[in-house]
Nucleic acid binder design. Structure first.
Lengths: 319, 319
DNA sequence: TTGAAAGCGGTACCAA
DNA sequence: TTGGTACCGCTTTCAA
């Protein structure tokens, strides 16, 4: 049986209130009584029950985090960074994964009273967030979840178009004539790709789209033949995993990178730095995103539902 | 303000007990009253406060998980798998990272009443687990944490020696004469390496040790010159990241793998499958470990402190 | 069938 | 300086 304030009060012949005062370091208890209480608490090995405290105070140090079922290395890194930052502020992440609407609801239900804020690191665009989350009293923060139409929660958007434009522009400047976009339909990346062509001489450079089922290593590997027969001299992959899969194919078929074909990835996965050859990639602004999240959690404290948009811009990095 | 049982009771002119009965699907409430309560609960959007329920029932669906500050891709994969398995059982992981003893204590204190079981996916061997955890009423499970001397908690050990022995034996059979161990001092891996030499003709094959500061990509890359000058024809790296770093060096210096030098890694990181050439690696028995954890959590339910050892054996996989 | 009431373990108001 | 006590919201016993 756990040691409670009541037990300590009984053992020391005082009241719950006095014990509570002493153990919380508040004033208003005589020196003798104080010493006795401290002594007994130590002997019994008192550890406060945070669940009870949280219930009473209607607050907690726990933050819900919803992650996609499958995460890229960069996402995992972002998550680890967020976890560290939360801990630095005395908070802890309670994890759940993005599932079907009904399961999602069930999950949020299981969290009521435990977490007051839930951060979505991913969202299924087919689900209407507003109607799903309606009725819950938690606060929600959507981080880089694409086009969420939502009037009640905080939405952090990452504008990757600048980074993509920069990457494509660089390819163009280095004299590439035909550039392929390879991946599946991710609106923000496609529009970044397109707007890059508008900026850079659109008439001089050709663009083609090569679509894949998934965005993993194998998909990049499998898309390689099509890429090669399409006679492009540069490819922009929407994930680093795709790009790495392609690099493996290139290695096997003695295709020279970047002499024969230039490659740019997206995500800045760590393994990319050690691929052969090193992958050039558009980075995620991890620190900026997480700083923003912590700022929201800490300063606004989210005592009331509020609505806001935050946009973070990213940059192109080459390794 | 949240909707509570009391509010519904007031709004429907009944008692908390009846509302509770209805919403928990228990019998013993008249049809009319039942319908009214359901109606009002729906209108008000009732969501039970799990924190209060947990306090009352002295239980919870939350499981603490302590992870190392820096995780390998394989560890992250194991964690994601564990999270999915927990969710399948209706449980959720509360995450924390392995820190200094004082911070660790503080963390566990913040979790009292919230989680009843904490899983350590890593441990600092310099800390005495028994004295640190003494006084807490949580249950602890140590997973693959090396040599933990502990008489009160559940310890899951992964025996990698078999896998390592197998890998080294295979190198020996393929005619390698001098095999290097590269990495820092990880007792179980070193002893696996050593015992492999005892099994396989120790007089015929030479072994050398090349130590690194860390076990990351860069360390493998930096260790490469020493490895090459030591004139070995095979290297066993204690992490895949080390091995991948070496592969990059080999690529740059036109060293042929495995013609010039054979390479085996450890961890079975995914990127290894797409390195050039593909990395041969000793796998982590992810499923087996996590199955065991879930089994412990579910079947034993950890209602009483118990003490046990579980050992899982791994195998060598080559890709 | 119904509901009053006693908890779970802290917190903090208020009166002594 | 003390300590009694109501309360956070839910569960469950027990009596009506």
């Amino acid at each position: 049986m756990a040691v409670t304030l009541k037990k300590i009060a009984e053992a020391s012949g005082t009241s719950v209130r006095s014990v509570n005062r002493v153990l919380k370091g508040q004033s208003g208890v005589g020196a003798e009584k104080r010493a006795a209480i401290v002594q007994i608490a130590k002997e019994l090995g008192y550890v406060p029950n945070i669940a009870a405290r949280n219930l009473r105070l209607r607050q907690s140090n726990f933050v819900g985090i919803i992650v996609p079922l499958k995460q890229s290395e960069a996402q995992q890194r972002r998550l680890a960074d967020l976890q560290a930052r939360l801990e630095a502020e005395g908070m802890f992440p309670l994890m759940g994964s993005l599932r079907e609407p009904e399961q999602l609801k069930q999950m949020l239900r299981e969290w009521t009273g435990i977490v007051s804020t839930v951060i979505f690191c991913a969202w299924d665009s087919r689900i209407d967030s507003e109607s799903l989350l309606n009725g819950f009293s938690q606060h929600y923060i959507f981080v880089d979840c694409g086009n969420i139409s939502n009037q009640r929660d905080i939405i952090i958007t990452v504008d990757r178009q600048a980074g993509i434009r920069q990457g494509v522009a660089q390819l163009a400047q280095s004299g590439r004539q035909r550039i392929a976009y390879c991946g599946y339909n991710m609106p923000d990346r496609i529009s970044g790709f397109n707007s890059a062509f508008e900026e850079v001489s659109p008439d001089k450079i050709g663009k083609i789209f090569i679509t894949t089922e998934q965005i993993d290593f194998a998909d990049g590997y499998n898309a390689a033949p099509e890429i090669m027969t399409s006679r492009v001299d540069a490819v922009f992959f929407i994930t680093d995993r795709l790009a790495l899969g392609f690099l493996k194919y290139a290695y096997e078929h003695k295709i020279r990178i970047p002499e024969d074909i230039a490659v740019i990835g997206f995500d800045d996965d760590q393994p990319g730095h050690y691929s052969c050859p090193a992958l050039s990639s558009v980075a995620h602004p991890i620190s900026e995103i997480n700083e923003k999240i912590i700022e929201i959690l800490v300063t606004k404290n989210l005592t009331t539902k509020e609505f806001s948009y935050e946009t973070i811009y990213n940059q192109r990095e080459s390794s």
